[in-house]
Design a protein around this nucleic acid. Sequence first.
DNA 1: ATTCTTGGTAAGTCATTACTTACCGTAATC
DNA 2: GATTACGGTAAGTAATGACTTACCAAGAAT
Lengths: 104, 104
Amino acid sequence: MTYQESLSALADPTRRRIFEAIAQSPQPVGALAKTLPISRPAVSQHLKVLSDAGLVLCRVEGTRHIYAARPDGLAQLRAWLDRYWDKVMDGFAEEINGGGGLDD
Amino acid sequence: MTYQESLSALADPTRRRIFEAIAQSPQPVGALAKTLPISRPAVSQHLKVLSDAGLVLCRVEGTRHIYAARPDGLAQLRAWLDRYWDKVMDGFAEEINGGGGLDD
DNA sequence: ATTCTTGGTAAGTCATTACTTACCGTAATC
DNA sequence: GATTACGGTAAGTAATGACTTACCAAGAAT
């Protein structure tokens, strides 16, 4: 549920594909696996990672586990990146107008 | 130089620390290593990853290699995340007002 | 010119991780 | 109730990656 989990979860290309796929339309695990070059258990494991990161949630319909993207998760990652951006730009600005100095 | 490289580069906590540090003020490799719990070669290797991702650049002053953050790199990552966000939200919106169905 | 500082690269190790197959439980179907 | 569809978990493997020490090249300093 932290931005770090979201970050490393989405760092994997396969997980990005999965997340994108279920973001476009929620799907059960098997259907998802058919569209991917990996086995169903592999998809299950990726979904667990995405779920632990809070990027995804699951509703159970009978034996079908239908996964859907959870916008909050992505929102948190965006929020982190924005704060990070600000911090970095602050440092960068300091560097430009005098670095350690502040004198001018 | 792609967003994927930036993403996986910043997925590593140590690399985030390094990036943040040199964003606050550009530093030579050795000075950077002193503030971190890892060896200087390890720092060098992290810097190479950050550099390949376009997040960092280096100016040479004698034997000193002074690394600085490159805002463009982060900007590209932010831009990607924003587009990604839009895409995901599109899918999410579709899902809400009818999804695959459209019937109701 | 030699010595010292600085930092990149090579090679090897250990942990992590992305995948596989095999297995098990549970809900639907006949 | 037996069978089939669905999916999570266990266990093992192969690749990746973060680190180490050892080494080498190049500029500074004495």
